[in-house]
């Protein structure tokens, strides 16, 4: 069963991606739908009773395309296919800082590794689907790897000192 690191808690993932066998069942009503399908028929994807709706962005997707749907979304999942692909950091920042998205922002994929955790949290990702093999305790510690930073960032990373402010 897939686990996620939400804030500092390691929990069973209540969400299912569209296409997973138990997605949308009464046990797992919360479903993450790829942007293309969501955009194709937004009416169809009205949240099921008792369930919540999430969107999944591929690396090439523009988060701006979600802007009118955001009020209906409880979650946006952003893809990090490998640690070197940093497009998701910009997608996350746009969702948080510019579009004002306050729901769960999830980082998913093989790129969500120990040495990315701190930057992801600073960009506003509050849920991490850690890649295989990443030690959970180490990931928790990595959320506080630096206690100072120059740039503004998401307040979930508590800093002792910060130079520049938005």
């Amino acid at each position: 069963m897939r686990h996620i690191l939400r804030q500092r808690d390691w929990i069973a993932d209540p969400w299912r991606y569209l296409g997973e066998p138990d997605a949308g069942t009464p046990q797992h009503p919360d479903v993450i739908v790829p942007l293309a399908q969501l955009r194709g028929d937004p009416g169809h994807w009205a949240a099921p009773p008792g369930g919540r709706l999430g969107a999944a962005l591929a690396v090439t997707d523009a988060p701006e395309a979600l802007s009118d749907l955001l009020p209906r979304l409880a979650l946006v999942a952003v893809e990090f296919p490998n640690p070197g692909d940093g497009r998701g950091y910009s997608q996350g920042r746009i969702l948080r800082a510019r579009l004002g998205f306050r729901g769960e922002l999830r980082a998913a994929g093989k790129g969500v590794r120990l040495d990315q955790v701190f930057l992801l949290a600073r960009c506003g990702f509050d849920v991490l689907e850690l890649a295989d093999g990443v030690d959970v305790e180490a990931a928790r510690r990595a959320l506080g790897r630096y206690r100072v930073a120059y740039q503004p960032g998401d307040p979930q990373v508590r800093l002792e000192r910060q130079r520049f402010f938005a």
Binding site: P83, G84, D85, G86, Y89, S90, R93, L119, R122, C123, Y146, A149, Y150, Q151, G153, R163, F164
Partner: peptide, 13 residues
């Protein structure tokens, strides 16, 4: 230099 140092968004360009 300070702004660019470990910039959370621009470390994996």
């Amino acid at each position: 230099r300070q702004w660019a140092t470990l910039h959370p968004e621009f470390t994996y360009l």
